[in-house]
Design a protein around this nucleic acid. Sequence first.
DNA 1: TTTCTCGTCCTCTTTACCTCA
DNA 2: AGTGAGGTAAAGAGGACGAGA
Length: 207
Amino acid sequence: MEAEGYCDTRLGLGLGGENHEPWPQKKKEKPAVRLDLSFTLCPKNDAMDMDHHDKAEGICFKSEEDEEYGIKRHDDSIDSNIDGSGRKKLRLTKEQSSLLEESFRRHTTLNPAQKHSLAEQLNLKPRQVEVWFQNRRARTKLKQTEVDCEFLKKCCESLSNENRRLKKELQQLRSQKTGRSSPLHTQLAKEGTITVCCSSCKGKFHD
DNA sequence: TTTCTCGTCCTCTTTACCTCA
DNA sequence: AGTGAGGTAAAGAGGACGAGA
């Protein structure tokens, strides 16, 4: 994907217009100032080198010591990881993860200013912060879906139990009142089941 | 008003890495 | 110690959508 700040060929200088915005101001939250003059006519086959550069800027790859201490690494071993044989997986340090989590608790989406600020703070690329938030939202949603699913299962189970109980009750009533018939009994006999929600589910779908 | 571009989001998928049997 | 399966998380890909020009 796009490697922000390195391969972007948009010049950040308006030609002859002091009011000219260097970047398309699509969103109101867009930072007012952006001094990015990068003009790397980066050919496609240089993408690896560019990525390589980014990764050397404070992104770490997991190692035994990272795992244990959450140390941010800037070593040369990163260089040797990028050999064109495929991408290497970034592992966020504990500090980075906890700061991202903390930020996510405050707001689950970021405006561009927040994203850039957080990226700077974490020594990550804004794109990486964005991806982390996307994945985090997806994880949250998945978790919520699981919770909802569990609740529906329990509700279904409860309804089934209630249905069984009511059927049994109906059967008993029928056997007690053999020979006598009322409109209600006739109706119940026709339907065979009662579709009134049980007390345990009542109100759960309508807050 | 319509069309185009851009940025962001969501969803699904791929990939690297980790853990555990 | 080596290995394969399964899980997890970062990142890629692509489509949808809204806003601005």
